[in-house]
Design a protein around this nucleic acid. Structure first.
Lengths: 249, 249
DNA sequence: GCAAAAGTGTTAGTCCTACACCCATGG
DNA sequence: CCATGGGTGTAGGACTAACACTTTTGC
């Protein structure tokens, strides 16, 4: 497993970004994190801004490098600028492990971090070896895991924005496999919202958005009545993204 | 009129902030801007981040310094990071006027700017002399004024976020005088939304939020039937801010 | 007393909510 | 054949949108 080296000369000082990468699996909303072995804490994958790119390009590059995914839903949601969140903070294990192969002068400064959140298809993510050879891990968003610095807070804020997005935009295309069932989509909504929804009303509402194509087939193999399979109608989905939905979840 | 000098030693490199300061006057939504005499362009008031403060503190400080206002509604809404928006851009008149009393080495770098928007009471703003002795000016948001760099875009994005805010949170406390009439509040909503609302449905909806105290008096002096005066019920207003409204404007 | 603006009320339609019922599948 | 989950339908209530009527004020 090769360690990717990190040449800090191309990066702007003081500015970083952190990605909250949401995935959906086993009826749970999960966040892709890095496990820090020395302290057993989790950290969000982050990155830095090259001198000739926008933050969006940087976030997209970081995600591509680390998850292999391209063209996924990616959005900045807040800047975290508390002076105490810098890497000089001894709570940040990246700042205290001298064995890590990076440029201390660059890292041990105050960082303003732009938070991005991404929605990805859990099954398609193949995390690349981390810069620091940390281990990748999918954490359940609600699990009381210990995170470095303010990463717990960054996740919570991302989740709140995601919930808001749910009210105005369709969601799911990036989080679900290409073909899925109505109960699966409903589970996704319920998981994000943190509460149960009525099965029948959910179907009616989703159908009223006209963002789904019903496929002839049904999902077989499970017990009980087999549900229909759906795929997203990308044209209408995109239109709904642009125009908004005005829903009341 | 004294020129405020700008000691750049306390600021972080590469990071700035721009404020879209909304005010409401003459039934128009206005933005507080600086007029650049040489090119007749407008610019948003901006500032920099001190080494020991958060972005929110910096924005609050900048607003206090420049408008005299304290404890106003202030919120970051987006980061603008296009590499071409730097001060090296010859379109930025701040970069090309050698008479201006500032540290060129600091300014002529690439800047990532965090956009804030503020809601202020038009009548209470007393703009302080600008660092560069530029002139203050209230621009109508829709007026086709020429702005430096990407400031037109920053305003448009702020307006969009403001419209979204309207759907989930009460608005007006920061934009209207302490006592106001229902038609004035309605005009504010109509101006932000860019469309007309039904007078009677508006009243009912606003009242359902229970964020207003009806005062006994009426506003006199104008022609026609005199409208009642209202003030915001701050306790409920604050509660509504925290809990959200779920409106459909 | 007339025009314009503001206060109050009503009604039809839409949307949300909360249910009941039937059907398919595996054990 | 029964337990469980999935597909479809319907009635009640809340909320919205559209509109009518009355009241106040300045000219």
């Amino acid at each position: 497993m090769a360690t990717i080296t990190l040449d800090t000369r191309h990066f702007l000082d003081h500015i970083s970004l952190d990605c909250v990468i949401f995935g959906f699996h086993d009826n749970e909303l999960k966040v892709l994190t890095l496990q820090i072995k020395t302290t057993l804490e989790s950290a969000l994958p982050g990155g830095f801004l090259k001198k000739d790119e926008t933050l969006e390009q940087a976030a997209s590059r970081v995600l591509k490098e680390r998850t292999g995914l391209d063209e996924i839903f990616l959005k900045q949601f807040k800047v975290f600028s508390d002076p105490s969140r810098s890497n000089e903070n001894p709570q940040n294990p990246l700042a205290v492990d001298p064995k890590l192969p990076y440029n201390f002068e660059f890292f041990n400064k105050r960082f303003i971090s732009v938070g991005f959140y991404a929605l990805v298809d859990f099954t398609k993510v193949k995390p690349a070896p981390d810069f620091y050879s940390l281990e990748w891990q999918w954490n359940n968003v609600n699990e009381p895991v210990k995170y470095i610095i303010d990463h717990r807070n960054i996740i919570d804020e991302a989740l709140e924005v995601l919930r808001l997005q749910l009210r105005h935009q369709p969601i799911g295309y990036n989080l679900l496999p290409d073909r899925f069932t109505m109960p699966e989509l409903q589970k996704l909504y319920e998981t994000i919202l943190g509460r149960e929804l009525d099965r029948r009303n959910f179907q009616r509402k989703i159908h009223s958005y006209k963002i789904l194509n019903k496929l002839g087939e049904r999902k077989k193999g499970g017990a009980h009545k087999s549900p229909f399979l759906y795929e997203f109608n990308l044209e209408n989905y995109q239109k709904a993204l642009n125009e908004g939905l005005n829903g009341t979840w």
